[in-house]
Amino acid sequence: MSHSTEIVIVRHGEAACNVAGIVGGDKGCTGLTETGRAQAEQLAKRLASEHAIRPYNNLYATPRRRVVETARIVANTLNLPETVETELRGPDHGEADGRPWTEIKTAFGGPPQHNPDQPYAPGSESWNGYLTRAIAALETILRRHGGQRILVVAHGETIEAAHNLLLDLPIDACRRFGYVTDHTAITRWYRQVNRFGQATWLLAAHNDTTHLPGTPR
């Protein structure tokens, strides 16, 4: 059997909006903290060691500032050009952008995933609206780069979208469970083709942060 395609999705480093509990859209995201930059550098070193053995063919990033800053550190270390994919951006927050998440969730009656068909603020996407967009963008990337090794620097929500796509989950699965995804965590999927030509997506890693100091190995 062989791994015909691999997609590795990593979450961005710690951002100022994460620490402050602020909705981090285009307005609310002011970039990485010092801790976040250090996390991105540790992530880049780990990915570079992999890249030296089996090179990544492509590097994609989302346009939010915290992701762009993380991706730039990774791209410079791997000497790999990055492509910013607008359709992979995090949810569009509308009037929630820049406001405290506690305020938004209190007004909405919970996180966006628990009422996934409804916008959680004026002008925002619904959770399912975001999922539909992100899944379509991931499908496009996978079709474009079949048989290659793809690296995506993105959001925790992007990882949720990838799991929905590759696990073929129902759209309302988010009402029942979620995922822990830490800053700069690595998620790894392989498309395995066996000797009979049958293809299966395999989840090889989720929330892997062993590159960060203090993480058990």
Rank of each mutant, 00 (worst) to 15 (best):
S2N: 15
E6D: 13
I9T: 10
V10I: 15
A15F: 07
A16L: 14
V19H: 04
A20H: 08
G24N: 00
G24F: 06
G25N: 06
K27N: 14
G28N: 04
T30I: 14
G31P: 11
T33G: 04
E34L: 10
T35L: 08
R37Q: 13
A40I: 12
A40H: 08
E41T: 02
E41Y: 00
Q42G: 10
Q42N: 12
K45G: 15
R46L: 13
S49M: 06
E50K: 11
A52M: 10
R54Q: 15
P55Y: 04
P55E: 07
Y56P: 12
N57I: 00
N57A: 13
N57M: 05
N58Y: 13
L59E: 08
L59T: 07
A61T: 05
A61Q: 03
T62Q: 05
T62E: 03
P63A: 05
P63W: 05
P63F: 06
R66L: 07
V68C: 08
E69D: 12
R72N: 11
A75E: 05
L78A: 04
L78N: 04
P81S: 08
E82F: 10
V84Q: 02
E85P: 01
E85M: 06
T86L: 15
T86Q: 15
E87W: 08
E87Q: 12
E87D: 15
R89D: 09
P91I: 00
H93Q: 04
H93Y: 10
G94A: 03
A96Q: 05
D97N: 02
D97K: 01
G98W: 02
P100T: 03
T102F: 14
E103I: 03
G109N: 02
G110S: 04
P111C: 01
P111E: 14
P112G: 06
P112L: 03
H114P: 00
H114F: 09
N115E: 02
Q118F: 06
A121H: 05
P122T: 11
N128K: 10
N128H: 11
N128F: 01
G129Y: 02
L131D: 12
L131P: 12
T132N: 12
R133P: 04
A134R: 09
I135R: 11
A136R: 09
A136F: 03
A137Q: 01
T140M: 07
H145C: 04
H145S: 10
G146M: 11
G146P: 09
Q148W: 01
Q148M: 10
R149Q: 10
L151A: 09
H155G: 05
E157W: 08
E157T: 08
E157A: 13
T158K: 07
L166I: 10
L166G: 11
L167Q: 14
L167R: 15
P170Q: 07
D172T: 12
C174R: 06
R175N: 02
F177I: 03
G178N: 07
G178H: 03
Y179L: 15
Y179W: 12
T181E: 14
H183P: 10
T184A: 09
A185G: 11
W189P: 04
W189T: 09
R191Y: 04
V193H: 00
N194D: 14
Q198W: 05
Q198R: 14
W201D: 09
L203M: 15
A204I: 10
A204R: 14
H206F: 13
T210P: 02
T210E: 06
T210D: 06
L212K: 00
G214H: 00
G214S: 00
T215C: 03
P216M: 03
P216N: 04
R217Y: 01
